[in-house]
Amino acid sequence: MIAPHRKHALWLAYALHRASGLALAVFLPVHFYVLSLALTTDGRLDDFLIWSDQPLVKFAEFGLIFLLAIHFFGGLRLMALEFLPWSPRQKTYAAFALAGSFFVSCTFLLSAA
């Protein structure tokens, strides 16, 4: 349940930004570890890439890309809010960030399929 005083678009944008930031912090080390496999152990990256070709894993990657995209676009919105002259269209920008993130991550999903 979301408390009544939080039920507005920009609070939800904030919550999404925090959740995606924390999720990135958890997943990025794993991501870099996997990349490091390419440099260190023979064949293990290939094993991993074969594993990651499964549809479920592809779908999880879609989630990751979505998180990165929403955090990136949402972060840009926050920095624009704080450093550029004020614009009253904050909700529109938050919606654009969401739409942009879906676009980027769905493009990945379609090209992976």
């Binding site: 005083h5 939080r6 507005h8 920009l10 609070w11 904030y14 809010l81 004020w86």
Partner: peptide, 16 residues
């Protein structure tokens, strides 16, 4: 401030 804008959303005098 995390720019959540609860303040702006509820300010009865429509301040920002």
């Amino acid at each position: 401030c995390h720019s959540q804008q609860g303040c702006t959303n509820f300010c009865p005098n429509e301040l920002n």
